[in-house]
Nucleic acid binder design. Structure first.
Lengths: 259, 259
DNA sequence: CGCAGTGTTGATGAAAATCAATCCCTGTGG
DNA sequence: CCACAGGGATTGATTTTCATCAACACTGCG
């Protein structure tokens, strides 16, 4: 069966038909969650794994004073913590950004297929490690990348991740995030995101309209973002590493085209 | 055998004497790494797990233009990625911040003890999940906490983590990080860290001298930082949750004492 | 002694937040 | 079909936070 989950896991290990069958067996019937509704709430005791089948969600944390930080973005095929049932309580919430279809895998069913198929076990482990690597990259972005670099980097990442589950073409992909969403993901304000976005458009790096992102100048965008797809661990084979900056700090540089 | 590693894992599950013995058996003889030297380098193919026995290290990433971001801090008892041998190549480096003593566990030995002892397997898994949770919290800090909040939060976290391995007392702990280190961890400049530090000292929240941090007003520090130790998943039992903000956005607030 | 890394200070400028209006879609109900 | 509501996008003016630049003091150490 071809689901975003199997497509994603196939980036990490080649799954056998039997593996895919095992997954299909344990995936409970999906439920729909409307945009802005929580899929799981903070403080819950985790018992099941949730898999995103369609739509976008995010982990987030909100302070009492209203400040919100999106901690990570969950795209189709992503599973919310394959191993989370091991922990005590959830320290963050997961919310739907668009309408989302999620399927659960019971904690014990999960343990069972991991025990049954070493390949699946490896796949889920790698999925988790890749997720951790993405989280580290976000730390780098928030800590040391400028506004324009952050935005560019996020777009590069999302495009690559969507390609890995066949939801993007060579130069464009869906982009349902609103500017407030982008602001909360990148630790900035919507006003500032808006202006940075205009800079990127002005430099002819991309267009963004109708909830769709089109990358006009991939090489420059990657270079500006210092985007190196290695951290996604999606398997060198299919990664368009062609734009991975061949380094050399001294090149024309898009930065000149930005204000 | 009592090592920082077993002390740390005991926060997640109670290890049997046999489990501790298994660990002792697979820990290779430690090696010393001097401050500012890499323990593992970016791009390496991971084969072994490294455990910090003493000293502090960090994951970090450095751009060609000199900007450096410390991605996470590794304290005694922390292991650098118990499951990392599953991935292709390292996307970041790990460097020693002080002189560090590290012991390796061979990849196959690791797999073997995990297979042999379900308790150990669970412990290492939880260790990894707790590490991921810390990484998420850093994302929140870098994205939405102000300079003073960030610094306060980091100090709260480090103090709690050190307590979990019996390296801190009730109100103080070693703090070998230099101001440049703090700056690279918190995504700011050393000048700004210096000034923020003065604010925290000025508000009588802490003292920091001779590479030792002393918390003078733990409740206020936690409140300022919005520090909730839940995310460390160190086991409710021993966590000093007493200062976990009982919430209520309307209280005196230390913030008033800061400039 | 002198050096290097660290900590500190002041002056200045850039990046981003904040405040406050619009404007513009898009879906909804009359 | 149109008016309306509401979220999203955009703009300008202003303030705050933080970075940058440039000294200089302190400390441990060869």
């Amino acid at each position: 069966m071809d689901t975003p989950l199997t497509r994603k896991l196939n980036n990490f290990v080649r799954l056998s038909a039997m593996d895919e069958g095992l997954i299909a067996d344990v995936l409970e019937p999906p439920r729909l969650v409307e945009a802005r509704v929580d899929i799981v709430e903070e403080g819950e005791i985790p018992r099941t794994v949730n898999v995103i089948l369609s739509g976008w969600a995010c982990r987030y944390r909100q302070f009492e004073d209203g400040r919100r930080q999106i901690i990570s973005l969950l795209l189709p095929g992503d599973c919310c913590d394959p191993h989370i049932p091991l922990l005590d309580r959830r320290d963050h919430a997961i919310g739907a950004l668009t309408q989302v279809s999620v399927a659960r895998i019971g904690g014990s069913a999960m343990a069972e297929i991991m025990a049954r198929s070493p390949t699946l076990s490896l796949a889920f482990h790698r999925e988790a490690l890749a997720g951790a690597a993405i989280q580290r990259e976000w730390t780098v972005s928030l800590g040391r990348r400028s506004g324009a670099e952050r935005l560019a980097h996020l777009f590069c990442e999302l495009h690559a991740r969507l390609r890995a589950v066949s939801l993007a073409d060579e130069t464009s992909c869906p982009m349902p995030l609103t500017q407030p969403d982008l602001a909360d993901a990148l630790g900035q304000t919507t006003v500032h995101i808006n202006r940075t976005l205009q800079d990127l458009r002005g430099a002819s790096l991309l267009t963004l309209k109708g909830r769709r992102l089109t990358v006009l100048d991939s090489a420059s965008l990657c270079q500006l973002a210092k985007f190196d797809p290695l951290y996604l661990h999606l398997g060198a084979s299919r990664m368009a590493s062609r734009h991975a900056l061949p380094s050399g700090p001294d090149r024309p540089g898009v930065a000149d085209r930005l204000p």
